[in-house]
Design a protein around this nucleic acid. Structure first.
Lengths: 168, 168
DNA sequence: ATATATTTTCAATAAATTTTGAAAATTCAA
DNA sequence: TTGAATTTTCAAAATTTATTGAAAATATAT
């Protein structure tokens, strides 16, 4: 297989993969393209390589920057903006985990804590099942939260960092 | 807060949560409803409680059964079919991980392994970045695969099971 | 076997999401 | 400043995804 074909296949698969994770296809494709581009590239490069409109590129690169996965790069003497992606997959994963935790897990845990405190007779089986379910999810989520914190902080801690390097 | 209101909020939030994970809103809502229902319920119950059509309920319950999260239950003397969900959140998570690994991670790793073997001069920086990126993702994915296998097998292993019970 | 209840299917419809492209805003060199 | 290059915005259009509902298929009681 040649590079051109392999690139196309990677970008396409990464895009499809993204849709299973609540990420839109184009955003994932742009990310894929940036991941395999050795040097920073422009909006026009992305437009051309993925055959998508300027507006689309603009919105999705901004989103990717919001996720902390892509950076704007200014190249001296160049008028246009360039974009580049973090290439270390461990850092990419950590960043995604950090963001999703903040955007999804933390608010969900907050809600569950509220829902657990409903009024009602705990001998009533509907009440009991509700409280048990909510408590179970909250407890599980709380543990997941802690495990993810360890992963995120691994990068900042010498000891954990060394330990987890074995997995890199 | 009363049970009725809390239920509605849980179902609604769980549905929204699901959409961030590539699961459609209704499927997540049906799952939420079943999680907090102490006894098995029918298609008609689900239709009524979520205000959705019969066809919709039918398709989504079938999907949930395919995910191994919901079971059909036959109640003696009853003509209708009843549905019930696994209530142990650890088992729910394990089951989801198992399925997603099979449906998404494994095929992706297979593809990456193929893409890594492209023809081309490794001194060319485009080739190099492509191979490095693919290799990095594959390696990371491979490690994730192993970690998830441990989690999945924990349920089947007495020792790991006991160990992980501390986290439940 | 027949009638009735129940489930399943799927084409049509509706809703949600994504994409476009052109106008407006911004940036920057001269 | 001015004007050309570049980026951003966002309403409208296109596309994708989800939902409905009625007909067909299936299951069950008598």
């Amino acid at each position: 297989m040649k590079l051109t074909e392999a690139k196309a296949q990677f970008i396409s698969s990464w895009g499809a993969f993204g849709t299973h994770w609540g990420i839109n296809r184009t955003m994932a494709q742009i990310h894929a393209l940036l991941l395999i581009s050795p040097d920073p590239i422009t909006q026009d490069d992305i437009m051309e390589q993925l055959s998508i409109s300027r507006g689309n590129v603009n919105m999705n690169t901004r989103d990717l920057i919001g996720w902390g996965l892509v950076d704007r790069v200014l190249i001296p003497g160049e008028r246009k903006e360039f974009f580049t992606a973090e290439k270390d997959i461990w850092k990419v994963a950590t960043q995604i985990i950090k963001e999703r935790k903040k955007r999804e897990l933390d608010p969900m845990l907050k809600l569950l804590t509220q829902l657990e405190q409903i009024e009602g007779d705990k001998k009533d089986k509907d009440v009991k099942q509700f409280v048990d379910t909510i408590a179970g999810i909250r407890k599980f989520g709380g543990q997941a939260d802690k495990v993810l914190d360890v992963m995120i902080k691994a990068d900042e801690s010498w000891f954990l960092g060394s330990l987890l390097k074995f997995f890199k």
